[in-house]
Design a protein around this nucleic acid. Structure first.
Length: 723
DNA sequence: AGATGCCGGATTTTT
DNA sequence: TCCGGCATCT
């Protein structure tokens, strides 16, 4: 078979060594996805292995989809019958299949951290715990660690010493798990934990999955945690046909329980491991790679390797100092707009920052420059209020035990069922040992005359939709629910720009159901129903919602950039306290992880890298002096180019900004009007700015007035503020 | 029941 | 700076 000629010798070794354990140490851009694809194709097309016997685990849904697409396009392998997915999606699939061995049913809900937060709140109240003494974040993180280490509440003190913090955490953990089971719900960690425990405790099932998945491949192995290690180990221990691919230099998820030792110790965990190193980089020029290598070699614990490349370019990574974060954003926007005017697509530009909070100034700057942008991550689409509301309705129809969702929507949109009534319904449900869903089907005598009817009407409504959900596909169902609840109308009628965005998001949601349906029908030739849709969305990330059809600059955290590549990469806020983050500075392991994060960021670039830092930065509303990241000192001087003309010295008068763009110099005036600004007009009264077209006070404003009118007015005719 | 307004705490990163 | 939670008022 000559399709293997596309690979270099090491990659070919990976693709063709199908039996026994392989560790592939694949540097950034060394073609590891390619190796996995060719290996899969080799298994199927050459070795004639049944589709059914192959399991491929990726780090994101997006990576899984790309893998499937490429297998289909290049090798005509229909990916539908292949198990390719993230750990979480694979586990979900297994758990739904094996409900008879589990303490929950196949239609369980998956709770995200918004749900999680409200559960914790409830438990704190019930157990009378003060969140000030036991910060929810800290407790949740400890509990999450337990789950990732497969420690159930009953085993808690076998692994944790007893002190005032763990005592309480234990109580919360126990209560939390109880609540989830009562709701027939699992959180992200549970998906892994229950799967691992299931395979561990049940010999028959273990054999079933070991027999089914005769060939297992894991991508991004450096970022697996103990539960994930265990799941794979239980499946592959016998046949040992396991290929793991990863790069210890790109391990950036230890805070999520990922254990870098999984990859460092692979050779000890399995026998006669074949180790293959992929060190040729096909992505970045030498000038960029040299800087990255120079940085990462400062880490102590790593598999020794050095990336090299054939690609040459004179362009070294550039380092630019700016006055503050606004100037930083402004500078980047100018750079991007310069690139686009010389023919570069916005799609080839990537902005990377350490924390989501940094994205805001860039939004403003890109908006001003009329550059289309997309923020990936931050608040996930499915975590937005309006989306969670409609999803809560959908969840209840599938899983009536989901009281969390039930409470969320019992009075949304407002139907005059308040706190007192809700409590009475809950009491009634408890007394009669039924779900809230069933409770509201009854005439509850403890309620007031009118309220009884309201509640029953609500119950009937849910019942009606539940029946409907079994008959009609997801899209018409969602349309009908949104319609009957007038969800979009609620927001459309408002003059708050946030509400207008909400209305847009709901429409977007309907589109999402349609897209899902199209794919689902294509893949399975079945009608896309509610349960299918719900299963697909709970594990979706923002990355999966990136619209590839519009040209946009992408903005994301460095964590989100894993596995991606772009021509031009701008890494911003390269300052001590931000990168390395202040919370990681005094712990060696965390500190090295920060270094890897910068390494990942730099190695995304195919053509150019710009690193920026500021002289001072606003944090929490107060301004503080910024210190250039200590990582910058680790990169040899001759590997990086410093742009001096943008260096604003503390004492020196601020140099005039070089006009690198055809557009006029940006003045403060340009930021005079902002979206959401409250204004006053002598004739129309109070209003809110919905859009700003142009610069300064003369900008053309789209204004929504409190009287209901929507007008376009020149800025000079209105005053800022309410009067 | 719903609207308004004040206070206090939060920012690391995500499936 | 902003957001959410809570108290208070209508």
């Amino acid at each position: 078979m000559n399709f293997l000629d596309d690979l270099n010798p090491q990659q070919r070794k990976v693709a063709t060594t199908t039996e026994g354990p392989i560790l592939v140490l694949a540097g950034a851009g060394s073609g590891k996805t390619r190796s996995i694809i060719y290996r899969t194709a080799y298994l199927i097309n050459v070795k004639h292995i049944n589709y059914y016997n192959i399991l491929v685990v990726t780090f994101t849904n997006k990576a899984a989809r790309e893998l499937k697409d490429r297998l289909e396009r290049s090798f005509n392998i229909s990916a539908y019958s292949l198990w390719i997915g993230t750990f979480h999606s694979v586990c979900t699939r297994i758990l739904r299949e094996e409900q008879e061995f589990l303490p929950f049913t196949a239609n369980f809900s998956i709770f995200d951290d918004v749900d999680q937060k409200s559960i914790y709140k409830k438990i704190y109240k019930k157990l009378n715990i003060d969140p000030k003494d036991f910060p929810q974040r800290r407790v949740a993180s400890l509990i999450s660690n337990q789950k990732n280490s497969l420690i159930l509440p009953k085993d808690f003190f076998d692994f944790n010493e007893e002190n005032y913090f763990t005592e309480t955490t234990y109580k919360i953990y126990k209560e939390y798990q109880k609540f989830l089971l009562e709701n027939n719900a699992l959180d992200f960690d549970d998906l892994l934990m229950y799967t691992a425990i299931l395979l561990h405790d049940n010999k028959v099932l273990r054999k079933k999955y070991a027999d089914r998945f005769k060939y297992v491949m894991i991508d991004e192995y450096q970022d697996t945690n103990y539960a994930q290690f265990k799941i794979i180990n239980l499946i592959a221990k016998e046949h040992q046909n396991l290929c793991v691919v990863g790069d210890d230099d790109q391990a950036i998820y230890s805070w999520r329980g990922a254990n870098i030792r999984n990859i460092l110790n692979f050779e000890k965990d399995y026998k006669n491991v074949l180790t293959v190193k992929l060190e040729q980089n096909y992505r970045s020029p030498k000038s960029i790679l040299d800087a990255a290598n120079c940085l990462i070699k400062n880490n102590s614990e790593r598999h020794p390797k050095e990336l090299w490349t054939d690609i040459t370019s004179k362009e070294k990574p550039k380092l630019i100092k700016l006055e503050n974060e606004k100037q930083e954003a402004e500078f980047i926007a100018e750079m991007v707009s310069q690139l686009t005017s010389s023919g570069t697509s916005l799609n080839d530009c990537l902005i990377l920052y350490r924390t989501n909070a940094q994205s805001r100034v860039f939004e403003n700057a890109f908006y001003q420059h009329k550059l289309k942008y997309q923020i990936v991550g931050g608040v996930n689409f499915y975590q937005r209020k309006e989306i969670k509301d409609i999803v809560a309705y959908l969840r209840i129809l599938v899983n009536p035990q989901d009281t969390n969702s039930f409470i969320r929507i019992i009075n949304f949109p407002p139907r005059k069922i308040g706190k007192v009534t809700t409590e009475r319904i809950e009491r009634f449900a408890e007394d009669n040992n039924m779900t809230l869903f069933d409770a509201v089907q009854n005439e509850i005598s403890t309620l007031n005359g009118k309220t009884v009817q309201t509640v029953m009407e609500f119950g009937k409504l849910l019942k009606k939709w539940k029946n409907l959900s079994l008959e009609i596909p997801i899209t018409p169902l969602v349309k009908k629910i949104i319609d009957e609840l007038k969800l979009i109308d609620i927001y459309d009628d408002s003059d708050d720009p946030k509400d207008i965005a909400r209305a847009e998001n709901l429409k977007e949601f309907v589109t999402a159901t349609q897209e899902f349906s199209d794919n689902f029908e294509y893949d399975t030739e079945k009608a896309p129903m509610l349960t299918d849709f719900l299963q697909s969305i709970s594990l979706q990330t923002d990355m999966d919602n990136v619209d590839e059809d519009i040209e946009t600059v992408k903005l994301m955290t460095m964590h989100n950039a894993k596995g991606l590549e772009f021509d031009h990469v701008f890494i911003v806020g390269v300052e001590d306290g931000l990168l390395p983050h202040s919370r990681s500075i005094d712990d060696v392991e965390k500190f090295e992880e920060e270094r890897r994060l910068l390494y990942v960021a730099i190695t995304r670039a195919k053509k150019s890298v710009h690193l920026t830092y500021t002289r001072m930065r606003q944090v929490f509303g107060s301004i503080s002096m910024a210190i250039p990241s200590r990582f910058l000192m680790e990169i040899d001087n001759d590997l990086i180019e410093i742009e001096n003309n943008r260096y604003y010295d503390l004492m020196a008068p601020r140099p005039k900004r070089r006009n690198i763009n055809k557009k006029p110099v940006v003045t403060e005036n340009q930021k005079y009007f902002k979206i959401g600004q409250k204004i006053y007009h002598s004739k129309f009264g109070k209003g809110i700015v919905l859009n700003v077209d142009g610069t300064g006070k003369e900008a053309k404003l789209s204004i929504s007035f409190s009287g209901g009118q929507l007008k376009k007015i020149i800025g000079t005719f209105v005053t800022m503020g309410e009067k």
